[in-house]
Write a protein that binds this DNA or RNA. Structure first.
Lengths: 255, 255
DNA sequence: CGTACACTTGAGTGGCCTCAATACCTGTGG
DNA sequence: CCACAGGTATTGAGGCCACTCAAGTGTACG
């Protein structure tokens, strides 16, 4: 049996399937279903809030292309960025489908998203429990990212946080084929990095400069080049193990 | 220790089913399956490490009774507590089943746990996809807790963090029937609270004293009494919405 | 009764914040 | 093509919150 060139092409084209297929083989049928879930896309312009905190959300969104921020604005106006949402990530799982949204989302670039209605999710669970389980499973991989950032903010210095953050972005983008061996491109300002790491923009600035001085990282415009991954990982206490959950791996429920 | 669920009446109300049944009705069959999953229990003594970071983990653990910490020790000896694990919570979902464990777990009390082997999870997915989906779904509710603590550590003052933390514990314990309207009992030291909130023990001490001075909270030994929930919630910027995901709610996949 | 650990409290330090001024960059419209 | 505006990066000086260190006081447990 040969794989249809169309399916193969689409497969490598969507980041989610790219990511999921890293560890498991999907049957052609499952692959088709996965692609079908991501077929009904729409494009949101840059710098748009797509779901305010407290808003109602009745669908699961899959990011096909573009970047978003998931954040919360506190009473005093402080912003905490909870996650940088990359292509292949979900929106609405956490803080979306729990009745009212817990976080706000803002597009950093024009974003292509696929909406999967709740009823469709339900139908998927009924008709293809194994596939659904794999998807739900990969949701919980996100938790590992939160936990790791929690450790960063709680117990790491500013320099370590920045280093760790850049390495995480590098790896996550590599998994969806959007970064090469040592560099990537993402429209994050120092202010955003600060809000993601519980710091302030001047602090980020100084950290980045120090990383450059030590010839570890080069940040220019939106391009980040990690010049010495080993040394940077060591500095940051970075262990990529927590990202392996992004791929579907060990839950091999009777394939 | 006077409000142990075992003493209260065991299986009819194990914390997990107690929690899950808050929002959905389970069929008698599903209920039986849920109870069966939690039937093979074992008891771990107090102050025991049950799963070192990096160790292999081949089963999903459900906490029936007792408290644990999920944490990471960094190179410099710093500890970051990622979560306080309560009865009804899972172990091994995040940072357990992804090949090697990402975190360590330590019992605060004697802990009763039920181990569900991976193959059994797989079988459940095949035989009862809807039930399995609900379980997997409730896993992702944990993410909301991480995200909320991330916001605390990133952008809230020490006083706010402590207040928020105590309120979260109160609510989570209420959900599993281990706290009354305004108070609960848990063997956490100030050092542990500090490690959970990215602070230091003296800082926690001062925060607790201030909360007592303002007649908001009373902490004595292992007992925490919230004297004014409204005022404390306001101080902490606490919104219990993020905890609703702990119960299975909106994913009503063709019941 | 002694050891270990937790809590409490104080004084001094330090990392990151705050505030602010300047330079830079990018897109826009004249 | 330039002028301009808005946001972003950069840099410095001063301040504050939480850290650090340390001493002293419970308190549980052998």
């Amino acid at each position: 049996m040969d794989i249809s060139p169309i399916a193969a092409g689409l497969n490598s084209a969507t980041p989610l399937t790219h990511r999921l297929a890293r560890r498991t083989r999907f049957s052609p049928e499952d692959e088709a279903i996965l692609l079908d879930l991501q077929s009904a896309t729409r494009v949101v312009p840059r710098n748009r809030e797509i779901l305010g905190a407290g808003a109602r959300c009745d669908a699961l969104l899959i990011v096909i292309d573009g970047f978003l921020l998931r954040y919360r604005i506190l009473r005093d106006g402080e912003r905490q960025i909870v996650n940088v949402v990359l292509p292949g990530d979900f929106i609405g799982v956490l803080g979306g489908l729990f009745g009212n949204a817990l976080f706000s989302f803002r597009t950093l670039t024009p974003v292509t998203i696929a909406a999967v209605s709740l009823s469709r999710v339900g139908a998927l669970v009924d008709a293809h429990p194994n596939l659904a389980a794999k998807l739900l499973w990969s949701f919980s991989g996100e938790s590992a990212i939160y936990a790791e950032r929690l450790i960063s903010i709680g117990r790491r210095s500013a320099l370590e946080r920045v280093a760790h953050f850049l390495l995480e972005l590098l790896m996550r983008l590599q998994v969806v084929g959007l970064a090469d061996e040592r560099s990537f491109c993402i429209p994050l300002t120092q202010r955003m990095i600060a809000d993601a790491l519980g710091l302030r923009s001047p602090c980020i600035n100084r950290a980045i400069q120090q990383l450059r001085r030590e010839d570890l990282v080069l940040v220019d415009k939106q391009r980040v080049v990690v010049k010495n991954i080993t040394a940077l990982s060591s500095l940051a206490g970075f262990d990529p193990a927590y990202l392996t959950g992004l791929s579907v791996d060990r839950i091999s429920c009777a394939d």
